[in-house]
Design a protein around this nucleic acid. Structure first.
Lengths: 199, 199
DNA sequence: TCAGAAGCTGACCGATCGGTCAACTACAGT
DNA sequence: ACTGTAGTTGACCGATCGGTCAGCTTCTGA
């Protein structure tokens, strides 16, 4: 088989397993997602899962690793850019897009970042989240300012992510509408206006 | 032993176990908190845990049930009161106090409300959360308004709760300061001002 | 003194966990 | 036709899970 052929009509088994695993990890949790269950949902045997991924932890890494990469890149760019109002506005937009494009992965490492401590990939996610909080909000800022940032970021992430938990039977929103509304609310909270200052 | 004597100098074993269990459930998760682990942390045997609580699920119920009762009462009072600005302000204050007084329990059923679906006590918690979202924000409100409520409530809950996850090595905040800052931010988001309306 | 309840424990049970291993099939290159 | 490799699988392993049970102590009320 040519090396460049993307396995034309059939999806790769490893991709299938990674996607099924991500769905399980984000909905019922990593601990409760047994390899047997993932294998059943994907239509394979447990042994096949362990053939493509050397361990359950490796499967988690494959499932949420790329999203963490994206978050790290987002964080790096924001730090590199100035602390200007424009940089903030740009960051908010990219952050919302990131959330919308990585809902399941974000749900997984945000909700289980505490319980899964010790796993390298989770430590990486926690470091990124912490870096995000630190960079967007300096330590000497007043507490109400820090609280505003915390509520904005956590609220945005959890609202999207918990939409799957508590609003899933609701009519599915148009992503574009959600994006606009979320950017609006976040800007209101994070872009300095009237009396408040950036630092 | 007289029935009214509160076991004077010694704390009750069941209370001790309930507290240890709550700590474990909120930090490493319900699934990962084995009865053996809880027993070890409390200085009892696994059999003793199952003597005081008929099952692991009963232990969860004892650990987070009271907090859910409190949330339901809070919700009921808010629904009973009018939809006035004063009612909202009062609700925000009580809500923040509730979060501060039930951090571990809230952490548990907010973060694991999805993965633990099926357990009666968790269903009760999810119903309360959903009722809260529904009552504070009517379905016909504009999306940006709903998003504002979602970000506010979820952000507040998660900020306090994730403080334990990502900021625990930080110097511990004065609860009174946190309370004031959080009430300030939530009021800014939820109390209708300038152009926006209550419905 | 003694009956009995309360509290606590180790031994044990079946089920399930993550993971290993040898064997089987299908197919590519030679 | 032969060989090697990728993919897949069931059988199996030790560990741990939640839960049951019989038995041990300690104390109390009659």
């Amino acid at each position: 088989m040519p090396a460049d052929a993307p396995t034309p009509s059939r999806v790769r088994a490893s991709d299938e397993l990674r996607q099924v695993a991500l769905e399980q990890f984000s909905t019922i949790g990593f601990a409760a997602s047994s390899l047997q269950l993932i294998a059943d949902h994907a239509g394979y045997s447990k042994s096949s899962v362990l053939y493509h991924y050397s361990s359950k932890e490796a499967l988690l890494e494959a499932a949420i690793g790329p999203a963490i990469d994206g978050l790290e890149e987002l964080l790096g760019d924001f730090v590199a850019s100035g602390r200007t109002v424009e940089a903030r506005a740009d960051f908010i937009e990219r952050f919302v897009d990131f959330l919308l494009g990585n809902r399941l992965a974000v749900h997984t490492f945000v909700n289980q970042g505490q319980s899964l401590r010790g796993l390298p990939v989770i430590e990486r996610a926690n470091a990124a989240i912490r870096g995000l909080a630190d960079s967007i909000c300096e330590a000497d800022a007043p507490l109400s300012e820090q609280m505003r940032f915390g509520v904005a970021l956590a609220g945005a992430a959890y609202t999207l992510v918990a939409g799957a938990t508590f609003l899933e039977d609701d009519r599915q929103r148009d992503d574009a509408d959600v994006r606009a509304a979320l950017i609006s609310v976040l800007s209101e909270l994070l872009i300095p206006a009237d009396g408040r200052s950036t630092r």
